[in-house]
Design a protein around this nucleic acid. Structure first.
Lengths: 315, 315
DNA sequence: GGCAAGCAGTGCAATTTTTGCATCGCCTTG
DNA sequence: CAAGGCGATGCAAAAATTGCACTGCTTGCC
């Protein structure tokens, strides 16, 4: 898009905080970039950047203008997507910000299904925690966010929610594997593998643990569910996930046998009286009109979830 | 704005329906313009115009894209207005589409007051009827519309409404000048000067006249209130206006003596039982964020109206 | 039926704009 | 105080945009 390059350049300079670094990234000389910026500042009639000894930084006018630029790009993407949609081929690009939970099974499966129907649509997945996901929505680096945590920001529109009870995952031969539900006091003396403090799962567990004052043995903290799950093969311990991370049907009736879930492990729900269920929020920026591809994918995710967890989805 | 020229060009071509005519208007050669358009179509990946023997016309993709372009321009104006607002001078440009009613007194007075406070703001007034005003909002040729008629379009947001009773204007020595209110049957045998059929005032009168089956003598139809008012000096007759067209306080207690209103004429309200009060709609395009200057002016108009007609304004 | 007029598209040369190089002045840091 | 990083600027090379002349096409009018 020739007619957007100058704007793109400003966006990159704003992100990099330096004209020279941005020029490197854009594969042009710093002088060319510098002059484009001077020219636009001239057209606007006001400087957009403060010149600091170590680089540049947006001033207030620049903040407003860059926000405008980003919304322009998002809008253009939507328009292109709509236009492509006219000719039958659904093409486009969908940017998703998601917690690690949804990246394990839900998104791979849903995206694969979607792409089977619309091969011209590409995806961008950013793994991040709630706050960053919201920031990405705001800076239009993400169209859709899946956040398993409370939503703070007022500028986020929640398209759907899914209630999920935390599951305790353990080796199939563990002494608790026979239980229908796990209570917090069952965890006393057990070796626990917990997600990092930023994770929604961890926050719910901490709230419960604090209330019950259970004494437990945290042997490992990680932000990688895959690592934690694999760790269980080597040292018998407990870790925690929500059903969408385990897979279709996982963590419900027959978690352990769920399709594709590690056959040596079983998942058992925590007692809701001990650990409150959490909520997965599926959201986008308030006031935005999503590109066709993103809007359709949002529909798909919500439909998938409603099919899998008919009683737990709200819209 | 260098980086918007190509887009502006497309907008003009779409409006002119011909590359050559647009090129004339833009003071460049048709070949240069033609190539810019081909280039953008190439970047979009799809043609935006149908090539007809007599020129070009937007296809569906083009319609979508041009709508996008116009919203870009409106957005840019808002951003510039916001940025200018940072430096203290409120500068900008406000585009208004209005019926003739509001153009007589309300808008001249309100704009003059506004400009006294913010001399760097310029205005654009387009006199038009309801349907065209809505079209102007949609094509972003107007920020604000004042329509004395029902609103049809779903994409219009009504910021405020003002109920206005139609006034019968007559020479001060007319036999009806003493009445508090005028009834439709009083008009029997009178010479009437009526606004054109498109006008909201006329539509309300017609509805009433049709119901009461009053026989009257329409001697003149015009779309100019000024002309009709002046005509009364030469031939004793009756014409009709709403209070905002008459002036501050006009048509209320003491219409005839209202400041600046023609001293040889008096205005008396029609009986609401005979002619239903109409509604002035003050609106802008749904979903739009108005430029600072326009938003502030909208506030001013509503405040003015609420001060003048405290009981008749709704928001 | 033919001819003029109006339209969009294209090859090529002139012109304008953009880019890159070398370099300046400024500030911070070690 | 010197070194290194930053943005700004003069100037020449490179790239783009533009205008001119012309094509092929259709419509409407004589």
């Amino acid at each position: 898009m020739r007619f957007m390059t100058s704007l793109k350049f400003i966006d990159v300079v704003a992100r990099e905080g330096s004209i020279r670094k941005a020029a490197d990234k854009l594969a042009i000389t710093s002088t060319a970039l510098n002059r484009r910026i001077l020219q636009i500042e001239d057209e606007i009639g006001q400087p957009l950047f403060e010149r600091l000894p170590g680089g540049v930084r947006l001033n207030t006018a620049g903040e407003i203008f860059v926000q405008h630029i980003r919304s322009q790009f998002a809008d253009l993407a939507r328009v292109q997507s709509q236009i492509a949609d006219l000719s039958g081929i659904r093409r486009g690009h969908v940017q998703i910000a998601s917690g690690a939970d949804a990246l394990r099974r839900l998104l791979p499966e849903t995206i694969a299904t979607y792409r089977a129907a619309h091969p011209a649509v590409s995806f961008d997945l950013a793994r991040c925690y709630g706050e960053e996901a919201e920031a990405r929505l705001f800076s239009l680096d993400a169209d859709i966010a899946l956040i398993f945590a409370p939503i703070r920001a007022a500028h986020v529109h929640v398209a759907a929610t899914l209630r999920q009870q935390i599951q305790c995952v353990m080796p199939a031969d563990h002494r608790l594997a026979g239980r229908e539900q796990i209570k917090l006091r069952d965890l006393a003396g057990e070796r626990l593998v917990l997600p990092t403090a930023q994770s929604g799962v961890r926050q719910l567990l901490d709230t419960g643990l604090l209330r019950r004052q259970v004494d437990m043995d945290v042997i490992l903290e990680s932000d990688s569910f895959e690592f934690m799950q694999n760790f269980l093969h080597f040292e018998s311990s407990l870790f925690f996930q929500i059903p969408i991370a385990i897979g279709a049907g996982g963590g419900r009736q027959d978690a352990g046998q769920a399709d594709g879930f590690d056959p040596l492990l079983v998942a058992r729900p925590m007692d809701p009286a001990d650990v409150a269920p959490g909520t997965l929020h599926i959201c986008y920026l308030k006031g935005r009109v999503l590109p066709v591809a993103a809007a359709k994918f949002l529909d798909d995710i919500i439909t998938t979830l409603r099919d899998t967890y008919p009683d737990d989805v709200d819209q």
